[in-house]
């Protein structure tokens, strides 16, 4: 086990609470060799084209966290107007609306909410947003197709990501 020496108390507390009181449909597990780096899995919300999918993300707490926001990125391919091909997310609280009173938990809940309510008016991926605005039915169909191909069990991802994953830098 890596020691938690030098890890701010706030991060220790947040981690403990995430494990002790997990949020429904969300899991966040720190890597053993870097306790600022988390493997995250978010279940696609019901009544959304992401339903029944499980999406892998990585989350990193920078040195000045919580004064600076965590860095979060989708690892699973997803068809969403606010997520680009590299998995980067357009979400205000991850940028200028970040507040040190927010936590990993609240960030992940916001990302889950973004899956329920895509916002094509503030897009990160213009082509996806364009389809979303012009032909929502088609966009939802494609999103569902992506979910089935990349985010369902037996797809390209494994929800059981744990300690021995390769090191990644953010």
């Amino acid at each position: 086990m890596a020691s938690s020496d030098g890890l701010p108390r706030r991060i220790v507390k947040e981690t403990q609470r995430l494990i002790a009181e997990p949020v429904a449909g969300i899991s966040a597990t720190p890597y053993q060799d870097n306790l600022r780096y988390f493997a995250v899995a978010i279940e696609g919300p019901a009544d959304s084209p992401y339903e029944r999918g499980v999406f892998q993300l990585e989350l990193f707490l920078p040195a000045d966290y919580p004064m600076a926001p965590p860095k979060v990125r989708f690892l699973t391919k997803i068809y969403h107007p606010n997520v680009d091909k590299l998995g980067r997310i357009c979400l205000d609280i991850l940028k200028d609306k970040w507040s040190p009173a927010l936590q990993i938990r609240t960030v992940l809940l916001s990302i889950q909410a973004l899956l329920s309510a895509p916002n094509p008016d503030d897009p990160l991926d213009n082509t996806v947003a364009e389809v979303w605005k012009k032909n929502e039915a088609e966009a939802i169909r494609r999103a569902r197709e992506f979910t089935e191909s990349f985010a369902m069990k037996g797809g390209t991802t494994a929800a059981s990501a744990t300690a021995s994953m390769p090191k990644k830098s953010c």
């Binding site: 000045d64 004064m67 609280i93 609306k97 507040s99 040190p100 009173a101 927010l102 609240t106």
Partner: peptide
Amino acid sequence: ANAVKEEGPSCVRATCPQAGC
């Protein structure tokens, strides 16, 4: 301290640390 160091001149517009305030 973080606001002055990281945000520079725009730190005069920093808002309450509470989210959404």
